[in-house]
């Protein structure tokens, strides 16, 4: 499980790294095309928007893996170690449900719905854009399971620090 997590972390960082690089280059290209070449790019913005959706959802998945999504932990921190573990377990079950029902099941429904719908400038199927949802859902499912099983360990470690 630990090795799998390392591989998935790395995969997500590579995906997001490529995406943000491509988006930066395309944005600069837009400016160059407009001013230096005087032929404004007609498709770059739409491509960037699609990549941004993939970037956002895969980044969000990665952050679940690092357990860095912002939460208000003020009350949780007042609890005993046992209570904290329980809350973290519940939290990860909720996350698992969201990943499975909303992102994977709901995502697949939307992909099916939009298979024949095309983006106006590039003509790419909108299903490509919505596909980011179930795929990120898979990553989040893994992280929710991973975090659920490792919660005890990390909290006792944290406890011994204090």
């Amino acid at each position: 499980m630990n090795n799998a997590k390392k591989i998935i972390d790395k995969t997500l960082l590579i995906i997001t790294g490529i995406l943000i690089s491509v988006m930066s280059i395309l944005s600069i290209w837009q400016v160059v095309a407009r001013y230096i070449l005087s032929t404004p790019s007609t498709v770059s913005e739409e491509i960037i928007r699609m990549l941004l959706i993939w970037f956002s959802l895969t980044s969000a998945a990665y952050v679940f893996g690092q357990q860095k999504h912002i939460a208000i932990v003020f009350f949780r921190d007042k609890l005993s170690i046992k209570g904290q573990i329980m809350i973290l377990r519940i939290s990860n079950i909720i996350l698992l449900l969201i990943a499975l029902v909303l992102m994977i099941w709901g995502g697949i429904q939307v992909v099916n719905l939009t298979l024949t719908q095309v983006a106006p400038s590039t003509g790419i199927s909108m299903a490509f854009m919505y596909g980011a949802l179930p795929i990120s859902g898979l990553f989040i499912t893994f992280y929710a399971l991973y975090n659920f099983t490792t919660v005890k360990l990390s909290i006792t470690e944290k406890g011994s620090d204090a």
Binding site: S38, P40, E45, P120, S121, T122, G123
Partner: peptide
């Protein structure tokens, strides 16, 4: 340089009229 809606057909429309489409 003419603003068009971000779509292929709008781009074609302005090109056919002789302008430079800018979505």
């Amino acid at each position: 340089k003419t603003r068009v809606q971000p779509s292929k057909t709008s781009v074609q429309l302005i090109e056919s009229l002789g302008g430079t489409p800018t979505p």
